[in-house]
Structures are given as C-alpha cells and as structure tokens.
Design a binder for these strands. Structure first.
Lengths: 108, 108
DNA sequence: CCGTATCCCTTAAGATACTG
DNA sequence: CAGTATCTTAAGGGATACGG
C-alpha cells in the first residue's frame, strides 16, 4: 500500500494552485486581516479582476473569510479561516524546500 | 519579515503542478524504477503524448532520471533522482493534509 | 515498446473600461 | 473602494494517427 496517495496530494494542491494563490495566502498569513486594496498593493502586478476571482475561489473553498462592512466608502476585508490556517504547515514545508533548493533553480 | 516567502513556495509548486505530476511522482516513490509502459498502466487515463511531455518536464528539472537501454524492443525506465527524493517530505505533508481534510471535501 | 506529429479544445490569465 | 463586464491571448491538456 502506498504511503502517499495521489488523490490526497491533489486535494491540497487544488487549493493552492493558481498563479496568485500562494502570494495571497502568504499576505494573509503575514498580515492577518487585509482589505482588498491592501492585498492589491501586496501583489503589484495582479489585475483587479484576477484578484477578485482568486479571492472568490479561496472563499468558496472556505479557506478565507470575506467580511463586508456596510459603509460608505465600501470596506471589505479578508482573513484566513481556521480551516485555511491548517494550510500553513503545508506552505511552510514547501517554503523550506524552496529555500533549501533555490540554489539549483538559480543556476538554470 | 515574513516566515514564508511566496517565491520559495512557488519554486516547489512549479515542480509538482501539472495535472499528472503528483501521480507520476507517487508511482515512482512507491515503485522505485518503472518503465514507460508501467507508468502508463499506473495512470490509466493519460495519453502517451501527455505522459511523455510530463516526464520530459520532470527530467529537465532533474527530478527524475531517464535511462534508455539500447535493446530491441526498446526499453526506457524512470526513477527519482536524489534531488527528486527531496520532494518526498513535501508530498508527504500535502498528503497528510489531504487525508485530514478529505472529509470536508466529500461534503461539498 | 516508446515514443512524435498534428490538430482541437478548454481554461486560466490579463488588459481595459465601467459602476454602485 | 471594491468590485463587474467584455474581449483577447496563451498555455495545458487531449484524441488520434503514424514512426524507429
């Protein structure tokens, strides 16, 4: 019996693949709660449409929580859900791997 | 300073994203050394073209090693490189997360 | 047996403009 | 401020047929 099953790896992978999702998650890990405009500033090259789409994905997967404040001007902020926080160790492992092996990447 | 940097996470992510790459890596983790036809059997729904392409990607990234035996009929096998094996803990972490959270997925 | 070549399709991503 | 709407492009994936 396999120690690792493809389907479970894919489960995790689905949640964090998307060109900008790691960056968004990291911003929320490091920044706790961020407004739409703050996220946009953290990701200088993303268009509003894409940022909205990725946030909607993450929200639908219950990884992040979107809070709308009924104010003028409008205010919306995003934070990791408790469920989303369980992904932190996964991201940390990938990060640690990346740091250890970044050298090889740079040679290419 | 952030504990996790997006760019390092992406480094790891790049290597394992691709619809079939986790499955290929798992097959090689569990099966050690496999021939093309054995891999194809492990991944019943993949086309030859795609399998070849994904294997070439992994080979180019030095994650797997491709060995050609000058025989008739041709024989080629694939195995993880030492570098590729460093990804195992990453996959294991993702797998563990997936198992723990598969329940939530099934409810959706 | 282990591939390539060709052609097609879907999807993600992006630029840009507009709105409550 | 925080989004939609519209249009376009690029890349990944796939079915099928052929080749050394």
């Amino acid at each position: 019996m396999p120690l690792i099953s493809s389907c479970e790896v894919d489960t995790a992978l689905e949640l964090i693949t998307g060109k900008w999702k790691p960056s968004i998650l990291l911003a929320l890990i490091n920044g706790d709660t961020l407004r739409f405009s703050e996220l946009k500033r953290s990701l200088p090259n993303i268009s509003q449409k894409i940022l909205t789409a990725q946030l909607r994905d993450l929200e639908e997967q219950d990884i992040i929580i979107r809070t709308i404040y009924p104010e003028v001007p409008p205010r919306v902020d995003y934070r990791l859900s408790e469920y989303g926080k369980t992904l932190i160790p996964v991201l940390e492992t990938m990060n640690a791997w990346g740091i250890q092996h970044a050298e090889r990447m740079r040679q290419k």
